[in-house]
Computed example of a mutant assay.
Amino acid sequence: MAGGGGRSHGLSSSRSGPTSNLLFSCGKVAIVRTVKSGPNVGLKFHGCPLWPVSV
């Protein structure tokens, strides 16, 4: 989530400290995922627990 550029990822967080939860606009708490392919393999990021969703 580094950078900026004015993009919104649908996340919000409270500033209560390192144990605060990130919430997506759907109301679900973000989970930590790990990149499994490409140049960023092994890096961690916050992802939606509903992804991927079978529609």
Rank of each mutant, 00 (worst) to 15 (best):
1 M>Q: 13
3 G>I: 03
4 G>K: 08
4 G>F: 04
4 G>I: 02
4 G>W: 01
4 G>M: 02
6 G>W: 03
6 G>R: 12
6 G>C: 06
6 G>T: 07
6 G>Y: 10
7 R>M: 09
8 S>W: 11
8 S>T: 12
8 S>D: 15
8 S>H: 15
8 S>M: 13
8 S>N: 14
9 H>E: 15
9 H>I: 11
9 H>Q: 14
10 G>M: 04
10 G>L: 01
10 G>C: 03
10 G>W: 03
10 G>N: 02
11 L>T: 14
12 S>G: 13
13 S>F: 14
13 S>D: 07
13 S>M: 15
13 S>T: 13
14 S>Q: 08
14 S>M: 08
14 S>Y: 13
14 S>A: 08
15 R>C: 13
15 R>P: 05
15 R>D: 15
16 S>C: 09
16 S>T: 14
16 S>H: 14
17 G>N: 06
17 G>T: 03
17 G>K: 06
17 G>F: 02
18 P>D: 14
18 P>S: 07
18 P>Q: 14
18 P>H: 10
19 T>S: 08
19 T>Y: 09
19 T>K: 10
19 T>F: 06
19 T>Q: 12
19 T>W: 07
19 T>C: 00
19 T>L: 00
19 T>G: 06
20 S>N: 10
21 N>L: 09
21 N>Q: 11
21 N>T: 14
21 N>D: 13
22 L>N: 10
22 L>S: 07
22 L>P: 04
23 L>A: 08
23 L>M: 09
24 F>G: 04
25 S>G: 05
25 S>T: 12
26 C>H: 08
26 C>V: 02
28 K>A: 14
28 K>V: 11
28 K>L: 11
29 V>A: 08
29 V>E: 12
30 A>H: 03
30 A>C: 06
31 I>M: 07
31 I>V: 09
32 V>K: 11
32 V>I: 15
32 V>F: 12
32 V>S: 11
32 V>P: 00
33 R>M: 08
33 R>G: 05
36 K>F: 01
36 K>Q: 04
36 K>M: 04
37 S>M: 04
37 S>E: 06
37 S>D: 10
37 S>R: 14
37 S>G: 06
38 G>T: 04
38 G>L: 03
38 G>R: 01
38 G>I: 00
39 P>M: 08
39 P>K: 15
40 N>E: 11
40 N>G: 06
42 G>R: 00
42 G>W: 01
43 L>Y: 09
43 L>M: 01
43 L>P: 03
43 L>N: 06
44 K>Q: 15
44 K>T: 12
45 F>I: 05
45 F>Y: 15
45 F>E: 03
45 F>P: 03
46 H>Q: 13
47 G>F: 04
47 G>S: 01
47 G>L: 02
48 C>E: 01
48 C>H: 08
49 P>Y: 02
49 P>T: 03
49 P>G: 07
49 P>S: 03
50 L>G: 00
50 L>F: 10
50 L>T: 10
50 L>Q: 12
50 L>C: 13
50 L>V: 10
51 W>D: 13
51 W>P: 00
51 W>H: 13
52 P>C: 04
52 P>D: 02
52 P>L: 00
52 P>E: 04
53 V>D: 06
53 V>E: 12
53 V>R: 08
53 V>Y: 12
54 S>N: 12
55 V>E: 13
55 V>D: 14
